[in-house]
């Protein structure tokens, strides 16, 4: 007579019926030896469950809380950094709006200077934030990458604008610098929005 394997006995304990369980049960009904084996299996499991609980000899809470505190402080600093970044961005906007409305000099040139200053301030704010050293989620990283690509395109167009005649050049350069500021603004926004999405 072929007795039940350990696998077959274990399978009988499971809630769902496995193929082969019906014939295993039939065997079990007529085989005292396999019934004894199943009983031993039950007892073994009962003994495992009854093993005394092992306790840690050292308290690990100080390590857990210290590490958690460090993480929380880093998170708070990150948040503060982003708030600072947003503030820097709005100061940059304020500065850039300043020179506007002085009609004595060439308005085209002044507006270009203003846009350039604003672009520079935004870029400084961004570099202080060190976006290269931070991890973004996939979607945000994609948006940031797209904005950076568009800024690079604007930079190439600015180089080419130099070849244009004065009047056309000023118009084109002003348009490009303003576009650049808009893109940088959006890039700053992406980083700030990302932070608020994380819920810090």
């Amino acid at each position: 007579m072929t007795h039940l394997t350990v696998e077959a006995l274990l399978s009988l304990r499971e809630a769902g019926l496995e193929p082969g369980d019906a014939s295993a049960r039939a065997h079990l009904d007529g085989c005292p030896r396999c019934r004894a084996e199943l009983e031993r299996l039950h007892q073994r499991v009962a003994r495992l469950k009854a093993l005394p609980a092992l306790r840690p000899s050292r308290d690990r809470w100080p390590q857990v809380s210290a590490r958690y505190r460090v993480e929380r402080r880093n998170r708070r600093q990150r948040t503060a950094g982003l708030i600072g970044l947003a503030a820097a961005a709005s100061i940059a906007l304020g500065v850039s709006l300043g020179p506007r409305g002085n009609p004595a000099t060439n308005p085209g040139e002044q507006e270009i200077q203003a846009a350039m200053a604003r672009s520079q301030a935004l870029e400084n704010a961004l570099s202080r934030y060190q976006p290269d050293q931070r991890v973004l989620d996939g979607r945000t990283a994609g948006i940031a990458q797209e904005l950076e690509d568009r800024i690079a395109t604007v930079d190439r167009e600015l180089e080419m604008a130099d070849l244009l005649a004065q009047q056309a050049r000023d118009e084109q350069v002003l348009k490009l610098w303003r576009e650049r500021v808009g893109l940088l603004d959006a890039l700053v926004d992406v980083h700030v929005t990302r932070a608020s999405n994380v819920g810090l």
Binding site: V6, R40, R44
Partner: peptide
């Protein structure tokens, strides 16, 4: 499942639960 069966085969042997006959 096979790891569980292996474990029980060993425990049974090591605990001296081998059935005679």
């Amino acid at each position: 499942k096979s790891q569980l069966a292996r474990a029980h085969q060993r425990l049974r042997r090591w605990l001296g639960e081998e059935v005679e006959g």
